[in-house]
């Protein structure tokens, strides 16, 4: 290859790289913008929907709460209990080194209420409902059901997004409360079996060490997780292109983005709250 042709090829590769970088950045910004618009639209329909004759339907809200919350009780309860027991097992194992295994309650209580209950609940709801939301809306878009809603004079954001968003923001904190209780209860059972501390004593000690601030820390996080799960699921559903393959991609993308958003938000929340 001549020197000129070589420089030409390098130059073209560089142009292609920056071209792709530019396009990706613009696409990311566009998606971020869509998130913003969707949030603003959701708030608008929630607040002003009744004024324009399109209030949010309670039936749809309850149906979403059932789907996101009630149907997830089994799996989330089981996972929360397993995590609670695991925290107790690891806590006793570590503290035994210092002969302080009696203090395991403090570690388990803080970890479960401030960290693990919201996190595990968020991740499970993201896997279950975030993906389902993306798949459902994506399929509806491909089947022109979203267009059908619009020509019927029914705003798709008000009809589909707001109930899911509200349900997620109500049910994720509710499920988190349940996770906290079940996790602590399972931990208490193990501690009772391993150290002979009664369940009542374990719970009394837990209530003593925990403050309202700790509870709000966990619930505040879960509220944000609920918001993120719904918005990310909906955006990925609305952005579906290209048939069944597009729906599959949107579903996977939704789960990955939801879990990443939850973990990063969790870290930021912990950082800000403990400053």
């Amino acid at each position: 290859m001549s020197k000129g042709a070589y420089y030409n090829a390098v130059q073209n590769a560089a142009i292609r790289f920056f071209d792709r970088l530019g396009r990706t950045s613009v696409a990311a910004l566009e998606e971020l913008g869509r998130h913003g618009v969707l949030v603003a639209e959701s708030i608008y329909w929630l607040v002003a929907g009744r004024r324009v004759g399109q209030s949010v339907r309670l039936g749809a809200l309850f149906s979403e709460m059932m789907e996101i919350g009630v149907r997830a009780i089994g799996i989330i309860g089981m996972m929360a209990a397993a995590i609670g027991a695991m925290l107790a097992i690891q806590g006793i194992y570590s503290l035994k080194i210092f002969g302080a295994e009696g203090h395991v309650v403090v570690g388990v209580a803080f970890s479960m209420v401030r960290e693990f209950a919201p996190l595990i609940t968020g991740i499970l709801v993201a896997g279950r409902s975030g993906s389902a939301l993306a798949a459902r809306l994506g399929t509806m878009k491909i089947n022109q059901e979203l267009d059908a809603l619009e020509v019927m004079g029914i705003n798709p954001v008000r009809f589909l997004v707001v109930p899911s968003l509200l349900a997620s923001m109500i049910m994720v904190p509710t499920l988190t409360m349940m996770s906290m209780t079940l996790g602590l209860w399972a931990a208490g059972l193990y501690v009772n079996a391993a150290l002979g501390i009664s369940l009542t004593a374990f719970m009394d000690q837990t209530i003593d060490v925990l403050t309202v601030h700790d509870l709000l820390h966990g619930l505040g996080k879960s509220l944000i997780f609920g918001f993120l799960i719904a918005i990310i699921g909906v955006i990925n559903g609305f952005l579906v292109k290209g048939g069944a393959e597009g729906v599959g991609k949107a579903t996977t993308r939704s789960v990955v983005q939801c879990i990443s958003a939850i973990v990063i938000t969790d870290m930021l929340f912990a950082l800000v709250a403990t400053l």
């Binding site: 019927m152 004079g153 705003n155």
Partner: peptide, 23 residues
């Protein structure tokens, strides 16, 4: 306005290619 557009759409009916019934 958005409200007027909603009202106008009530006077339109559409049958899409695949039917677009809600499954």
């Amino acid at each position: 306005s958005q409200k007027a557009l909603f009202n106008l759409r009530k006077k339109l009916g559409v049958t899409f290619q695949g039917g677009a019934l809600f499954s």
